[in-house]
Nucleic acid binder design. Structure first.
Length: 413
DNA sequence: TGTCCACTGGAACGTACGGCTT
DNA sequence: AAGCCGTACGTTCCAGTGGACA
């Protein structure tokens, strides 16, 4: 066996073999649903009471669930739905449940097709008119008696870009249904979501409301401790790490997802070092690591023109100025495009791309007024320029432009 | 006090695409 | 095969605007 083969063999064996730290790594993933959710007894009880009637074959009230990310909305909902479905099977009730993440689904079409597949209706990936899919959904529902509980996770994503036509249709579906009934459960982490909604939809949808408060540090600690028991081997010392992880996450938004990620990555770092304890230092390293990975990933998956816009801002930020007007960015952008033999997008579009970069957090921009000199957006990098350079320099087309000196910049002085 | 800059951001529209129905 | 559909990504057009300057 050659030396290199041996090295790889070792690495693989290490990964496949027994971990010194983990017993069940999945327990730290945020999509893992434990059989007990600490500090959410009340929410589970209330949701159970609301959905309960559906077991008897009568439709239940529609519910709106609010709360910031990582407050357990999705976990509680999935937990309750799972038990509901199990109970329904036990007593042979005509109840079906369907859970759709609107943001992941992406489009109205795919949301509808997910709903269809939950009642065993096959629809093609694309090609059908929305109305056609909706009709199939309805007629399949009414072909037998079904009580369908539909959970729409991240429902705000559906409204924001597409308006509430689909939601409107869904809330009114019961009126045209004979035997079957549909109940809806909307989950949103945007509290302003209600304002964007058609009042008619809102009143039907929010017959009941549940608000999920963020977890505080102690509650987060309980959650982490519970998961740690499942995830880690006995004898692995994690108490310090758990304390720190929950403190950090509590200081941010009380986000359990964040806390779990932190703990998992810290543990992976410890594991890689061959340690059987997780230190505070591991947690701090993990914090940096998570942020770094997030940025790198966001950066890499950017479309070409967004990258060029970002590169323009990067090049501009080499001058000492702090924050750049859209006009300046656009000029540099056009120059880069020409240099690379690409036709530039319009300024309107670039302005939109800057907004998108702002949303991801790669840049920070705000609208400022310069009085006589107009009104524009002032934009600066939102992440260390080092990272941007490191990623862009590896880019096939953009790598060579990283040291380009824009003529426009020179002409400014 | 009004003017007017340099944009912003909404809205309507165009085009390309994959993939269905008929 | 033709025709239609939803989606993604752009363009074109334009009304609206905060505040420095005359």
């Amino acid at each position: 066996m050659g030396k290199q083969t041996e090295i790889l063999e070792n690495i693989f064996n290490n990964i496949l073999g027994e971990s010194r730290v983990f017993r069940n790594r999945d327990a730290l993933r945020h999509d893992y649903i434990p059989d007990y959710l600490p500090h959410r007894e009340e929410e589970i009880r209330v949701l159970g009471q609301i959905l309960g009637p559906s077991l008897r074959g009568t439709p239940c009230s529609n519910v709106l669930i609010y709360g910031k990310t990582g407050t357990g909305k999705t976990a509680v909902t999935k937990f309750v739905l799972k038990q509901l479905a199990a109970k329904a099977e036990e007593i042979e009730s005509p109840l079906k449940v369907s859970f759709v993440n609107c943001r992941l689904a992406g489009t109205e079409y795919r949301i509808l097709s997910a709903l269809c597949s939950s009642i065993d209706v096959k629809v093609p990936f694309t090609g059908l008119a929305l109305g056609e899919v909706f009709d199939r959904f309805k007629s399949a529902l009414d072909s037998e008696k079904i009580v369908l509980v539909v959970a729409l996770d991240e429902i705000d994503a559906l409204i924001k870009e597409r308006g509430d036509i689909l939601l409107y249709e869904l809330t009114r579906i019961n009126e045209s249904l004979g035997k079957s009934k549909v109940s809806m459960l909307g989950i949103s982490n945007d509290l302003r979501f209600k304002e964007m909604l058609d009042p008619r939809v809102l009143s039907t949808l929010s017959e009941e409301e549940i608000v999920f408060r963020p977890y505080n540090a102690e509650e987060l600690r309980d959650i982490l401790e519970q998961r740690a028991k499942i995830a880690f081997k006995e004898g692995v010392s994690v108490d310090v790490a758990i304390k720190l992880c929950s403190a950090i996450a509590a200081a941010e938004h009380g986000d359990a997802r964040r806390a779990l990620d932190l703990l998992r990555v810290s543990a992976e770092l410890a594991e890689r070092e061959g340690k059987d304890f997780i230190s505070e230092d591991h947690v701090y390293q993990a914090q940096k690591r998570i942020e770094h990975d997030r940025v790198v990933e966001a950066l890499r998956s950017l479309p070409t023109h967004s990258k060029i816009v970002l590169l323009s801002i990067f090049l501009l930020s080499r001058s000492k100025a702090r924050g750049f007007m859209t006009g300046d960015i656009y000029n540099v952008y056009c120059e880069l495009c020409e240099e690379m033999g690409l036709s530039p997008l319009t300024q309107r579009r670039v302005s939109g791309l800057i907004n998108e970069l702002d949303v991801i957090g790669l840049v920070n921009s705000r609208v400022v007024s310069l009085g006589r000199y107009g009104r524009s957006k002032k934009t600066m990098l939102g992440v260390p320029s080092r990272i941007i350079k490191d990623v862009l320099i590896r880019d096939e087309r953009l790598g060579s432009m990283i040291n380009y000196a824009p003529k426009y910049l020179v002409s400014l002085r």
